[in-house]
Design a binder for these strands. Structure first.
Length: 479
RNA sequence: GGAAAUAUAGCUCAAUGGUAGAGCGCCUCCCUGUUAAGGAGAUGGUUAUAGGUUCGAAUCCUAUUGUUUCCUCCA
């Protein structure tokens, strides 16, 4: 008999249908009611078993966490929680779950802290919470591919092992097959990387941008969506050592086109998730409200998850320049009361306390800040006419901070060569990148979206370690 | 890399330097149209680890380890 998934069953079942359902036992009440879930939806199907005519040892094996297969008939439910029941005709235990053992895991039918769930990342998929999170993570990812595909972008695979260390986005993880105990040495006693697998020093990529630019200068509109790695020792709720990044790169786009694209893109993702994950979003929305009700007023979310997503769909982001941001901050209450720990001066980067003030206190909405001083931005960003700022833009979200960082790229060969010198980037290493500026160069722009930060927004989860199945952070690579 | 907090039963947490406790879960029994089911009972501890102070340490001190939060870095 063909198995039917619970999502389809709940949508299509008619009274009298005979079906086969397989899944994991969420709860077994009164020896009669089995709540069964198969991951296709957050919703369970309720199976009803005639316990008086069922073998006692079989009943014992229908325990929380067990995998079972049921053949039965759909009938109108006598209870209030569901429209129909699956009346069990036959039941097969596919995989037992010893209650004494289950009790030591997060499968135990009770509330668990996120920290405890994280310790059992291999099992947390089974919980309602993480089922919802990872279904939404999938939908978020799919929305990204769909958005770009529908608009004629090409997905480009950029290398994960990179031989260039000029990306400048952070500390890198070395990739090597040399014997760490006794690596080959050069005459002057340094490690001889020429004998390594690739014949040179290689690392895990921190960004696919430079390669994406090469593709954009021929295919026009491209995007990458791949893993990136940062060996930064940062222990925060919004950093991972291994994370996924989405990087569109578009020929002939200037910085304003770039901002328009980013805003339309983020709005589309939110709408897609709202339209396609209604049950999961509702569950996370209600869960957050419940959790918030235990917190003091000041720590609660000013808007619910659904309100936040709707807000991004319906409203434009605030757009200001770096210079305007500095003026705003210097006229702000916390600045005048000397509440900021870091100085606010034109020419220094904004600290998270400043960004939080602008996004969460002043504008109370997503903010795009553009035209940063060239001094603390990457070498490839296009120098503005003022000679002091570059065509960079960061998008800041409430509670998450920088979700997107992007720029118009420097397309002028001479200016870029000067920048390389100023940033101590050897030209001979960047010959392939500089070549695009020699042969038919053109204005172009792009940005990087931290995928997990986006999933934080679409799920409302507060810790980035809870939106990726197996988080990699300093000192942690379990599972 | 910096700072702080924290570590007690399977989980979440109490315990003012003086007998180690609750709720939930698991287990047993009762009930049987429940849906965070209900009722009764039972189980469960080298108080993270190693030292120290004290008549006496879960409690105070030191170190180590783990976890969390904030900062730095960014996405």
């Amino acid at each position: 008999m063909q198995r039917i998934e619970i999502k389809e069953l709940l949508a299509t079942a008619n009274f009298g249908d005979k079906v086969n359902v397989k899944g994991w036992v969420k709860a077994f009440r009164q020896k009669r009611f089995i709540q069964l879930n198969d991951g296709s939806t957050i919703n369970n199907v309720q199976a009803v078993i005639d316990f008086e005519n069922t073998d006692e040892t079989l009943l014992k094996r229908i325990s929380t966490g067990a995998a079972i297969s049921i053949i039965g008939t759909i009938e109108e439910s006598q209870g209030a929680g569901q429209k129909f029941d699956l009346i069990v005709e036959s039941i097969e235990i596919l995989g037992d779950a010893d209650p004494e053992e289950v009790n030591k895991t997060i499968l135990a039918p009770k509330r668990h802290s996120l920290e405890f769930l994280r310790e059992q990342a291999h099992l947390r998929f089974r919980t309602n919470l993480f089922g919802a999170v990872f279904r939404i993570r999938h939908a978020t990812s799919f929305a990204i591919h769909k958005y770009f595909n529908d608009k004629g972008y090409y997905h480009i695979a950029t290398p994960i092992v990179t031989g260039s260390d000029a990306e400048g986005a952070g500390e890198m993880f070395r990739v090597s097959t040399l014997d760490p105990q006794s690596p080959p040495l050069t005459e002057d006693g340094n490690i001889d990387w020429s004998q390594d697998f690739f014949g040179k020093e290689t690392n895990l990529t921190v960004s696919g941008q430079l390669e994406a630019e090469l593709a954009a200068m021929a295919l026009g509109k491209v995007y990458t969506f791949g893993p990136t790695f940062r060996a930064e020792n940062s222990n925060t709720a919004r950093h991972l050592a291994e994370f996924w990044m989405v990087e569109p790169e578009v020929a002939f786009n200037d910085i304003v086109d770039n901002m328009d694209l980013a805003e339309d893109f983020l709005s589309y993702i939110c709408k897609y998730v709202m339209d396609n994950c209604a049950d999961d979003i509702q569950f996370l929305n209600d869960r957050e409200l419940k959790e918030d009700s235990k917190k003091p007023m000041a720590e609660r979310n000013p808007m619910s998850l659904i309100e936040r997503l709707t807000f991004v769909i319906d409203n434009d982001f605030e757009r200001i320049t770096y210079t305007e941001a500095i003026d705003l901050l210097r006229n702000s209450k916390p600045y005048k009361k000397k509440k900021f720990k870091y100085p606010v001066e034109w020419g220094t980067d904004l600290q998270s306390e400043h960004e939080r003030y602008l996004v969460e206190k002043h504008f109370k909405k997503p903010v795009i800040i553009r035209d940063y001083p060239a001094s603390f931005k990457a070498f490839y960003m296009r120098l503005n006419e003022d000679g002091k700022t570059v065509g960079a833009m960061d998008i800041l979200f409430p509670g998450i901070g920088e979700i997107i960082g992007g720029s118009q790229r420097e397309e002028r060969y001479d200016v870029l060569v000067e920048k390389c010198k100023a940033f101590d980037i050897p030209e001979e290493e960047m010959w392939w990148y500089l070549d695009t500026r020699k042969f038919g160069t053109a204005p172009h722009s792009g940005f990087g979206l931290g995928f997990e930060r986006m999933v934080m927004f679409t799920t409302g989860m507060a810790n980035i370690r809870d939106v990726i199945p197996f988080p990699r952070t300093p000192g942690k690579a379990e599972f």
